[in-house]
Design a protein around this nucleic acid. Sequence first.
DNA 1: TAGGCCATCTGGTCCT
DNA 2: AGGACCAGATGGCCTA
Length: 338
Amino acid sequence: MLKLPFDESVVMPESQMCRKFSRESEEQKQIKKPESFSKQIALRGKGIKRVTAGEDTEKEEEEDDREEEDENGLPKRRGLRKKKTTKMRVERVKFRRQEANARERSRMHGLNDALDNLRKVVPCYSKTQKLSKIETLRLAKNYIWALSEILRIGKRPDLLTFVQNLCKGLSQTTTNLVAGCLQLNARSFLMGQTGETALHTRSPYSSFYPAYHSPELSTPPGHGTLDNSKSMKPYNYCSAYESFYESTSPECASPQFEGPLSPPPINYNGIFSLKQEEALDYGKNYNYGMHYCAVPPRGPLGQGSMFRLPTENHFPYDLHLRSQSLTMQDELNAVFHN
DNA sequence: TAGGCCATCTGGTCCT
DNA sequence: AGGACCAGATGGCCTA
């Protein structure tokens, strides 16, 4: 069942057309269908008669069948005869192959669209530097797991641990990206990754929320034996920054992450900010279409609420310190099931 | 330049 | 029969 409209331009060399396809804008993303088989046949012939593929091939096949006779005029084979490979049959096979290719392209584009939507709702979204497919899936899995743990425990996590959990199993590049998005100090992050104490870099709230540091919570499923410390390298950016827990360097004090990611800020618990990007666009499709990116808070740490929002309507979470886990869970459920 | 990532093609299999 | 789905192959682009 072909669900999408087609035009006639797919018969062009696939390798050239397809190369550009993924880079095209959404408006240009129109699935193209090869010219109808009957039309191709008609055009290839006299260009007058317009017949269906079935009719045309049937006739020719009949003629071909009549040709399969021996000298005595008897058919060479009886019963189930193997259909002769005719020119028309080859054409038809080619046509169907083209149609199948178009459908496959369409299917993969749908898959990629879904993946793009997923990119938008996991932390660290950027239009200019997209996460790879596999990294998007991994990050999404970690993110879901981390959020589930928050709901289960009912307490806010330590940022460092939270980010470490987000980055479990991710590539070096993606880890850098996430850390950069959250503007984590490389030194503190590395120390946390290696299991060393990072108390000096922790939020003043850390001592209030020991649960998220418990060993059973620190490793998402599937990453129990992963040793990120062996692969960790210094970050490409923000590595020179002092931890924003300790100070606010001129660069890090910027409310906007100036790297590949630049979502607008939403203050998360006075520690980092969740940023909302293109709320109008995403809001059409996702009530939870937020783009989370941590930036240092401008005000003093621990101003109060875990989520301080530019507009309350956009983010109905109020994971304040005083919040109750059930309330939090209800709210999250409401958002994610909306 | 090797390797990662990606889009596409292709043939096979399953399902309606 | 035909569409959906899948996985392997291929070639291009990009980056460390």
